[in-house]
């Protein structure tokens, strides 16, 4: 049997499959970021936090919500909580969590981000960075750092032995679900009438508004969509990664590098570079695991030197 660089082929095939799976998460997250940046010109640093909210929201939906409310005990204000039992299954969580978090995103956009219209993108970056820190801090105070148990749904537990590796069913589901969402989003923005209007509104909002189209509403919906995609990725991640308040912060920096490599705002670029970097990172984990945390940034530096606008970006 052939061997490459002292590693048996099973290991290479296995790592490539894993790279594809991790790439799915990168693609989903960078897609949301690219949509928001491309259409709204906002560098959304709260993306990791909404990804985490997606996972937590799914956990709440599965285990019930604890809703805090203030009470007076011996004349002192304290917090009590009421338990709202919602024991839904994973499929409902996959549907409802992105919706709930998406609405939360739209509220965030309407009440805060909209005030930054027309300012430099750096203001949006600072605001979303601050929001992410607040959301993360609040959840950490309430739930600690070790996170919550979250099992793989029974239907998707187990796996297939492919000969070169044991592939868990759940990971297959992740790849399929994320490809569907990525392709669907790309199709909606590049190939539908709604997408065309949206792109036109980004190009020249005044003109599009003159045609009687409600541009601010469109922008809110787009932000909500980007956030919902991140939350969807969060729900997908919940059974395999630790569900804790910093799960998004660990990932978001890598995802930004992915977006920069793909070309800021390019939807196809973010999807392709998401999968590609997942693969490269996977291979690094075999050849020199210690470098797996930095390889994406090394590539980012090289891409910025050679093609400053990213692999798929348009030079401005």
């Amino acid at each position: 049997m052939f061997q490459f660089m002292h590693y048996p082929p099973q290991l290479w095939f296995g790592q490539l499959s894993l790279g594809l799976i991790n790439g799915s998460f990168y693609a989903l997250l960078s897609l949301g970021l690219a949509v928001i940046f491309g259409m709204l010109n906002i560098v959304n640093f709260a993306h990791g936090a909404v990804y985490m909210l997606g996972a937590f929201c799914a956990w709440f939906l599965l285990n019930g919500f604890d809703i805090p409310y203030p009470v007076l005990i011996h004349g002192q204000l304290a917090l009590a909580s009421a338990h709202l039992p919602t024991h839904l299954n994973m499929w409902w969580a996959l549907l409802l969590s992105p919706l709930i978090v998406g609405v939360f995103g739209m509220i965030m956009q309407r009440t805060m981000l909209r005030r930054l219209d027309g300012l430099e993108p750096i203001y949006g970056l600072l605001l979303t960075f601050g929001l992410a820190a607040v959301i993360q801090g609040l959840l950490q105070n309430a739930y600690g750092s070790s996170g919550e148990p979250y099992d793989i749904p029974n239907v998707l537990s187990g796996g297939h032995n492919l000969g070169f590796m044991f592939l868990p069913n759940y990971r297959i589901f992740v790849v399929v679900a994320s490809s569907v969402v990525c392709f669907g989003t790309w199709l909606a923005i590049e190939r539908t009438r709604f997408g065309a209007t949206l792109r036109a509104a980004t190009e020249n909002p005044k003109l599009v508004q003159a045609f009687g189209i409600n541009v601010p509403l469109m922008i809110t919906l787009t932000y909500g969509l980007g956030v919902a995609i991140a939350a969807f990725a969060g729900v997908l991640a919940a059974p395999i990664y630790q569900v804790n308040p910093t799960m998004g912060a660990d990932l978001i920096v890598v995802v930004f590098a992915v977006v920069v490599i793909g070309g800021m705002g390019s939807i196809l670029g973010s999807i392709i570079s998401g999968y590609m970097l997942g693969l490269i990172e996977g291979l690094t984990k075999v050849i020199y695991p210690q470098a797996s945390g930095v390889i994406v940034f090394v590539i980012m530096a090289i891409v910025l030197l050679v093609r400053p606008s990213g692999l798929f970006g348009r030079a401005s």
Partner: peptide, 20 residues
Amino acid sequence: HVRAPLSTPDFSSFLLQAQA
């Protein structure tokens, strides 16, 4: 052995090497 960076979210690559 395999040396994983601190705070790695995905250990599946390392687990696969351990399995192999």
